[in-house]
Design a protein around this nucleic acid. Structure first.
Lengths: 121, 121
DNA sequence: GACACTAGTTTCCTTAAAGAAACTACATGC
DNA sequence: GCATGTAGTTTCTTTAAGGAAACTAGTGTC
C-alpha cells in the first residue's frame, strides 16, 4: 500500500488552497499591485496618467491589466465626452478591500529588508 | 514640457513599491504559498511527505522551491542520520511571520468566491 | 501641414516558469 | 537480484509572461 497525503485532504485545506489561488490569480502578473496602489492614492486617473505613474509599464501591459481588473470588478472604466476623448479609471469599493492585503505585504517587505540589512555583518 | 509622474515620485511610494516587490519575489511562483501553508500545518516534514501533500507538484519544482525558501530563511533543512537518509524541512519563526499575509489572502479569496456566487443571478 | 495629445491595438521577439519522464545513488527487505 | 523507499538532479519540451516599437484614429495647436 502506498503512502498517501492526509493533511491536504481535509475540506478546510482544500478550500484554503482554492481561496489563495483565487486571490493570487486576481492579483497575478507583475503590475496589478502597482496599478492598484497607484489608483488607491490617485483616485480617478486617466490612461496616460497611469502610464506615467506606473513606472516602467508599457501601454500594452497597462491596457491588458486594466481590462483584467475591470473584468474582476476591481476598477471601473469611464469614457468621458471630452475632445480628445479621455478615459477615467477608478478603483471600486470592492477593489478597495484589497488594501489590507497590500498593506500587509508592504509591511512584510519592509521588515524583510530591515532584517536583511541587520544580518549584513 | 512633457508631463511627468508625480504621485509615484514620493519617497513613501517608491519604498512601498520596493517593499511589495520584495515580498512578491520571496513568494513568487505557483507553489510557495502552498508549501508554506502545508508546513504551517504539518510541522516538520520530509521531502516525500511534502511531495505527497502538495498536490500536483513534481520533485523538480519542490526541490527548487525549497532551496529558494531556504535561501530566504523561510524554512530550515535538516539531514537526519537515518538509513536511508531523510531530510526534514521546517518553517522558521521568520517564515511564520508570513502567516498573517497568507490568512488575509485566503480570507479575501473566500469572500471573492462568495461575491461571485451571489452575483450569479 | 507637421507635431502632440488622447487611448489604445498589433506584431514580433525574448525570457521565465513549469511539467513530464528518466536518471543517480544508496539502503532495506523478500 | 528485484522491488521499494529515501532525496533529489538532469534533460527536454511546452506554455505563459512580458517588453519594444510601430501603428490606428481622431482632435487640437502653432
Amino acid at each position: 500500500m502506498k503512502k498517501q497525503a492526509k493533511l491536504t485532504n481535509t475540506e478546510f485545506c482544500r478550500n484554503r488552497i482554492i481561496a489563495i489561488n483565487d486571490t493570487m490569480q486576481v492579483l497575478s502578473g507583475k503590475w496589478k499591485f502597482h496599478i492598484i496602489g497607484t489608483l488607491l492614492i490617485g483616485g480617478k486617473m486617466r490612461f496616460m496618467d497611469l502610464l506615467r505613474e506606473v513606472e516602467g509599464i508599457g501601454s500594452k501591459m497597462l491596457s491588458k491589466e486594466l481590462q483584467d481588473m475591470e473584468m474582476n470588478q476591481l476598477v471601473t472604466r469611464t469614457v468621458l465626452n471630452t475632445k480628445p476623448i479621455t478615459v477615467e479609471y477608478e478603483i471600486t469599493s470592492y477593489g478597495r478591500t484589497l488594501e489590507p492585503i497590500i498593506d500587509e505585504i508592504a509591511q512584510w517587505g519592509a521588515a524583510y529588508r530591515e532584517a536583511l540589512h541587520k544580518s549584513d555583518d
